[in-house]
């Protein structure tokens, strides 16, 4: 009779399994390799400072999650916006970001 019962079930439990795993692994992986978050932070700084002069010391980056999604939250104080992209930083990004 189980195929008749299926009419009432619109979310098979595997969807919940996949979704819960996805969320929990976001945090597990970030914790297992803190170096990864540090590299991300460095690369974000490089990319942004090409266009904007930021206060690196007060910058905050963290992984947050609510019940159904994970998000990367960055709080980056801006000192000054450049008129044109900084060429020097641009070259650096070209070689170190891939």
């Amino acid at each position: 009779m189980d195929f008749i019962k299926r009419f009432g079930e619109d979310t098979p439990s595997k969807k919940q399994a996949v979704e819960r795993l996805r969320l929990v692994l976001v945090h597990d992986r970030a914790r297992v390799s803190p170096g990864l978050m540090e590299k991300l932070r460095e690369d974000i700084i490089k990319a942004i400072t090409r266009y904007i002069d930021i206060d690196e010391d007060k910058m905050e980056i963290e992984l947050n999650s609510t019940e159904n999604r994970a998000e990367l939250v960055a709080n980056i104080p801006v000192n000054r916006i450049r008129r044109v992209p900084d060429k020097k930083i641009g070259e650096e990004i070209g070689t170190s970001l891939s």
Partner: peptide, 16 residues
């Protein structure tokens, strides 16, 4: 159980 959608299948686990 995979057919009923109550167990992760090969692709689900492989993706993760």
């Amino acid at each position: 159980m995979v057919r009923k959608g109550d167990m992760m299948n090969i692709d689900d686990v492989n993706d993760i």
